[in-house]
């Protein structure tokens, strides 16, 4: 891909002397879907319920006896040309010279432009109330490739905890590194290459029945998954103001109007909460 530079972000560090270009390779042939990566990340960052920096997309394929579970660990792709960075109005999110896409928590205003911009759904908004009052609230959060560990010579928490050694992390500018070798030796794919973001999380075996984007996500959504999704939305009333619950009754003209009115009511209550007049937590 030819070099493009947008706005104030650092240009890609791939091949730049004296700089590192951190990347991750996920070998789906090895991944067992144990979820240790997601749990290690949750613990490392004390993430609240309902938000994830890394999560597993999984799907049950086929019918008994020919069944298979396919799993893809999904996280921020630390793109070379990140749309989130381009769209952040306060320069809160930025591209580090060594390839990380990071967030300055003190600048973020919680406008969610970056969440809307991200094709990978890698970002989330932290809830307004957290058990530990010292932790940031109501700002955007996402995977940081564990820069606090990597800068001390440690592997990211998910990589360190991977039971099948399916996740490999390293510097692509070091030709001796395992990630650089794997990229040369193996057939690798990335998620949503059509977005032009040059993602830096590479997958081996994605083409062997992985939960690839976007076709499987759209066409293979099971009824059970839809039900879970609707239940999740019903139980999170008030956290976000655009969640529409699917279903004939809920999305009829009357049902839709009721949902819109409900969201607006939540928003007005939220205004009073932000002023400090009421508390729902």
């Amino acid at each position: 891909m030819s070099s493009r530079s947008y706005g104030l972000q650092e240009p890609p560090s791939l091949g730049v002397a004296g700089r590192k270009r951190y990347a991750m390779v996920v070998d789906l042939r090895r991944c067992t879907g144990c979820g240790a990566c997601a749990m290690a990340c949750k613990v490392e960052f004390d993430l609240p319920l309902g938000v994830w920096r890394i999560w597993l997309k999984e799907e049950n394929r086929g019918e008994f006896p020919n069944v298979r579970k396919v799993v893809v660990p999904t996280l921020c792709n630390h793109c070379d040309y990140p749309i989130c960075v381009r769209n952040c109005p306060t320069e809160s999110t930025y591209k580090h010279a060594d390839g990380f896409v990071l967030i300055r928590p003190n600048r973020c205003i919680g406008c969610r432009a970056c969440i809307v911009a991200c094709p990978y759904n890698a970002r989330h908004l932290l809830p307004a109330a957290r058990t530990d009052a010292q932790k940031p609230t109501s700002i955007t959060d996402k995977c940081s490739f564990c820069i606090h560990r990597v800068s001390r010579g440690l592997a990211p928490a998910c990589v360190a905890s991977c039971t099948a050694r399916a996740m490999i992390f390293g510097d692509l500018n070091d030709p001796e590194s395992e990630v650089a070798t794997l990229l040369l030796k193996e057939n690798v794919s990335v998620l949503r290459p059509d977005m032009g973001t040059a993602p830096q999380v590479y997958y081996i075996g994605l083409d062997h029945g992985g939960v690839t984007d976007p076709i499987a996500c759209y066409t293979d959504r099971s009824v059970a998954l839809k039900d879970d999704f609707n239940a999740f939305k019903r139980n999170h009333n008030g956290l976000s103001f655009g969640d529409i619950v699917e279903g004939e009754n809920e999305t009829s003209a009357l049902g839709f109007t009721r949902q819109v009115a409900g969201h607006l009511k939540d928003f007005i209550v939220d205004i009073f909460e932000k002023i400090g007049w009421v508390s729902r937590h």
Partner: peptide, 20 residues
């Protein structure tokens, strides 16, 4: 069922009714 809820991270519609 529980497994799918836990591991398939659902996402919110972030710009909602107020933005519309």
């Amino acid at each position: 069922m529980e497994r799918e809820i836990v591991s398939n991270a659902f996402h919110h519609v972030n710009w909602g009714i107020p933005i519309a």
